[in-house]
Design a protein around this nucleic acid. Structure first.
Lengths: 357, 357
DNA sequence: CTGAAAGCGCTTACAG
DNA sequence: CTGAAAGCGCTTACAG
């Protein structure tokens, strides 16, 4: 008989209604073997009629193998920008596909309570896994908490790779190299360069790719054509003035990211120059703005969304009981290190060197 | 004596070590009254020495008032764009402040499994609250699941307000009205207008604000100067051509959002026009691009991040035991309806009408 | 294949 | 202010 009070039905209610023992009910709701189809059907019916739902607390208290939470975290350290957002979109698509939920958390890597907050996250939400972006990818405190709690994680573009930890990244140096080759193929020899913020790995890698391409093409780099920017639009305005107002103006400018390239384009307009004829411009990142500029910007598209998706694939493949044995609490060694392809996006801001110069 | 095996210590271990009853331990770890300082100190010491941590499952099984999860959800229906991301940033800042975690979930409002997914979210994560953006704000299935589960939520810019449900929004019509007044104050009378996607409330509200300002200024609207855009950059390229290639070109153009305004600027450059002298241009939204255009774009800044923060403030104030009684499971009636101030951002893309025309 | 019993680690009455 | 007892709803051995 159905319980007459308001309390939620328990397996005892289900058992008495189905005319079986509570153990049999337990077996059915946990999809264990060794239950006759007849029993299973009776229990299923009783569960449906009563609207029975497992009490997770009671289960969790007895169960040796704690249930999965189906929650993973995206952890990042910098104030959320487009990059973080795009990573999230990719990751979310995989969460949806694999049936996980995503909790996002910005952890100030300089704050002393980062350990407490990470622990709180792991404990409260019983994280099944995590995906980290720089600079958290290399934060010993955060990694330590996750390691200790046995929470598997994937790092996106970590500063230093580790053999036993999986990661996902793109090859920024190679991308900058290819972009520079594009400029060189158009006949440009005097190429200005606007650097990014010191200390960022992107600043170094993009510069190295540029320098390598120049060197391999037998072109020398004019140090007076190198400007120090800061990745933001306004940081590059003076750089653009310096470069474009010279008598011996460079015929092309490589800005270390699109925002700074947009600054070059703005200053060129202000000075009455015609782009790309008077100067070719390239950026890096392919932010939404790049397509809306006049002229539209030649740049490198980092597959940021796919970076997030790839990290999710790595994580969920590992977490899925179908693809990994129940004992595989460790990543294989060496752990997977995925390098995703970028695209060099050729648009209107680059043109062949004018012969008539 | 400390337990010799590996099992985690329980309150029984703590009690025996501290020489008190388990009930006293329970009182201390739950911060109840009626415990002498002496007892409290002894228990605290035992807890620290043993590294005791409450077993949440055991607690949850007995506790009448289920513990808070300290998890709230951001629910949205459209593929995550800058708007969703900015809402999230604001919401996250309040989550951090109030000590909550944020889970994000994209719910396809046309999908049949939206109910199952919402229920799974509520059940698995034991949501303490939620923040919804359009079009989920008006989705009966989602709201129904939340209502039934007793999960309080705040809606951002819902299509239809409800007296008993809190909401946060800005006054888009008034913003469009003010932006148009700016154009009119500069002497513009022939103003082109590019509409957004049909069916979107933004399309209607921005148009209404424009029309009202024109009407109040005694200016008539030339129907041939109204173009149908689609909010995206490329959707407005033909609109811009139509408007700018006319012999009787409008002296100003109001694009219903910044992407479309960027298209107007690009086409103007392409046609060799000088901005803003030949034509003033305004947009709406203040996307990051707007500052990087040449000329930089006059537009309306919606405080999207603050919209998210305000929603969080509403929700957390309600959830906080300090500010709301334990029985206040309902919002007050009428529920709070917050309208946030926008900014009209004057930049370089608008100028006074040239007398010499 | 099925079931009766014990017990997980807490909180809830209730008694003093 | 403190404590002894009962019991929450399950799962884990164990027995048949």
């Amino acid at each position: 008989m159905p319980p007459s009070d308001i309390r939620k039905p328990t397996i005892i209610d289900v058992a008495s209604r189905a005319g079986v023992s509570i153990k049999t009910v337990s077996r059915v709701i946990n999809n264990e073997r060794h239950v006759s189809n007849e029993m299973r059907a009776k229990v299923r019916a009783a569960v449906a009629e009563l609207g029975f739902e497992v009490n997770e607390s009671a289960r969790g208290m007895r169960s040796q193998t704690p249930d999965k939470s189906y929650v993973v975290a995206q952890l990042y350290g910098d104030p959320g920008g487009a990059y973080t957002s795009d990573i999230q979109i990719g990751l979310l698509s995989r969460c949806h596909y694999f049936g996980y939920h995503l909790v996002v958390e910005e952890l100030d890597y300089q704050s002393p309570d980062i350990e407490r907050r990470t622990k709180d996250l792991v404990r409260r939400l019983k994280l099944d896994g995590a995906v980290l972006t720089a600079p958290l990818t290399d934060n010993e405190i955060v990694l330590g908490v996750l390691d200790e709690a046995g929470v598997p994680y994937v790092r996106i573009a970590p500063v230093t790779e580790a053999r036993h930890l999986p990661s996902v990244r793109i090859d920024e140096k190679r991308a900058a190299y290819q972009l520079t080759q594009h400029l060189i193929a158009f006949g440009h020899k005097r190429i200005g360069f606007i650097r990014g913020l010191p200390g960022h790995s992107a600043t170094l890698l993009r510069w190295e790719g540029f320098a390598q391409a120049m060197s391999e093409a037998g072109l020398s780099i004019d140090d007076s054509l190198i400007e120090e920017g800061g990745f933001r639009y306004f940081s590059a305005i003076p750089c653009a003035h310096n470069l474009l107002e010279r008598a011996d103006r460079p015929t092309a400018i490589f800005a270390s990211n699109d925002e700074m390239a947009a600054a070059v384009i703005s200053v060129a307009h202000e000075l009455g120059l015609t782009l790309p004829d008077d100067c070719s411009v390239v950026g890096f990142d392919d932010i939404p703005t790049s397509e809306m500029l006049w002229p539209s910007l030649t740049t490198v598209r980092q597959p940021v969304t796919r970076l997030g998706a790839a990290a999710g694939d790595l994580l969920f493949t590992r977490l899925s009981p179908l693809t990994s044995g129940p004992d595989s609490v460790e990543w294989p060694t060496p752990a997977p290190h995925v390098v995703l392809q970028h695209d060099v996006v050729l648009r209107a801001s680059t043109a062949p060197l004018r012969k008539t110069k």
